[in-house]
Design a protein around this nucleic acid. Structure first.
Lengths: 222, 222
DNA sequence: GACGTTTTAGACAACAGTGTCTAGTTTGAC
DNA sequence: GTCAAACTAGACACTGTTGTCTAAAACGTC
């Protein structure tokens, strides 16, 4: 049912990967077919053989990356804390997995950059991503928070708002690193997740659990 | 002492504004000098008369926008709640002013987009912005939170972390709108700021102020 | 009104990129 | 080995862009 049939040929994969790399680095206008062909170790004609024109290749690349990113997101979401005995640890572990494998990996970088620079030119192209990516994780998190709230673990009125805030907090320490193309270290992923979860739980702590005094902040490598 | 002398000539301003518009819309590679010339109502030769080549024009535009954005940020920061009788209202008003006039205005959109797409290619160009923009507001907010914490209004260990989280929370409801080039409405600015400040204060509430029950969430236009 | 400066319109060469075509080569299945 | 399909290398026309150049026109100052 997926719109892209990735497994068809080794050349296709090579082209898609190289094109993703070059489109991400140079943008749509700046990327040249020759550059992609060289990076893919493929003749230019082969690219035109698989994809009618540059725009066709671009949309194919975007859809391919979106499919992969959504699959990864789905697998991350499936490892969700269904029952929450250790809420803080569970949320932290989830935040680390999410930031590492979805938000800050190669595909996440690609999508953030391309949505930002070409999103207005191709509104329909990224709309499916917006629904299946940020939309899906928002509703999934919202559902989790609704469960936790009904059980009395957390005290939340607007579940979707809480989900957005959770994601924003998780991203707070990471965005300045990723903005310039860098990749956070494992320690940065961990401290970002821990800081976010601590603040989130303090804001939405249930009536029973009086907020514990905050542990001293880690030394974060700037 | 500023590196750009904007006031010199009306044509210069016209060129810089048009170039900012086109560079933001098309990216560096996609923007053509002819397009900029038409948009600026200026002959192409005039552009080459003022700026040696395309790259010179680009850096001039970026520096011009950065200067303007930093000036605006400075004026926003100077309207800071020095004494905080009504902390929630003061922080909310500040968040609204900041998001409206710095984060989501034309210059903010330009910088976000260009830093994202061309930041890796021109590392030195945006470094001054990173220091004078996000860096400055971070330290200013951190200083405010330090004051509030010493006065016992808030209970904060890591002031810089709190500043980053405050900004992240303020942006939580806005980033999905701005990501695709849209501009939030006044109601969206207001509800985003209010949601952020409420959660922030609940997370960092001082020992005295018991968190008040959360007001019902607004109907947010999706 | 004269004069120096700035701007304009257009032509121009050089170049890079797209997309096509062709002829020759490799590959893989049988 | 044969044959068809896929791939390659290169040439090719065409377009769009950059940056230069020139002669004419507009502008502003005195």
């Amino acid at each position: 049912m997926g719109h892209t049939q990735r497994g068809q040929c080794a050349k296709r994969i090579s082209i898609l990967d190289a094109a993703a790399e070059v489109f991400c680095r140079e943008g749509f206008s700046g990327a040249s077919i020759d550059e992609i062909a060289v990076e893919a170790c493929v003749s230019r004609q082969t690219i035109y053989n698989h994809y009618r024109e540059k725009e066709t290749l671009f949309t194919a690349v975007v859809e391919d990356v979106m499919d992969r990113a959504n699959a990864m997101l789905f697998s991350i979401l499936s490892t969700f804390p269904d029952k929450s005995d250790h809420l803080e640890d569970d949320l932290t572990a989830f935040a680390i997995r999410f930031t590492k494998n979805c938000l800050c990996n190669q595909d996440g970088k690609f999508l953030r950059k391309l949505v930002q620079s070409e999103g207005e030119r191709y509104p329909h192209l990224f709309e499916t991503w917006r629904q299946h990516g940020p939309g899906k994780i928002g509703t999934a998190l919202g559902a989790l928070f609704a469960r936790l709230s009904h059980k009395g673990v957390l005290r939340i009125d607007d579940f979707d708002l809480a989900a957005r805030q959770f994601l924003a907090l998780v991203n707070a320490d990471l965005q300045m690193i990723t903005l310039f193309g860098g990749t956070p270290t494992d320690e940065q992923f961990e401290s970002a997740a821990r800081n976010a979860v601590q603040t989130f739980i303090r804001a939405y702590a249930g009536p029973a659990s009086e907020a514990a005094p905050r542990t001293p902040a880690l030394a974060v490598v700037s």
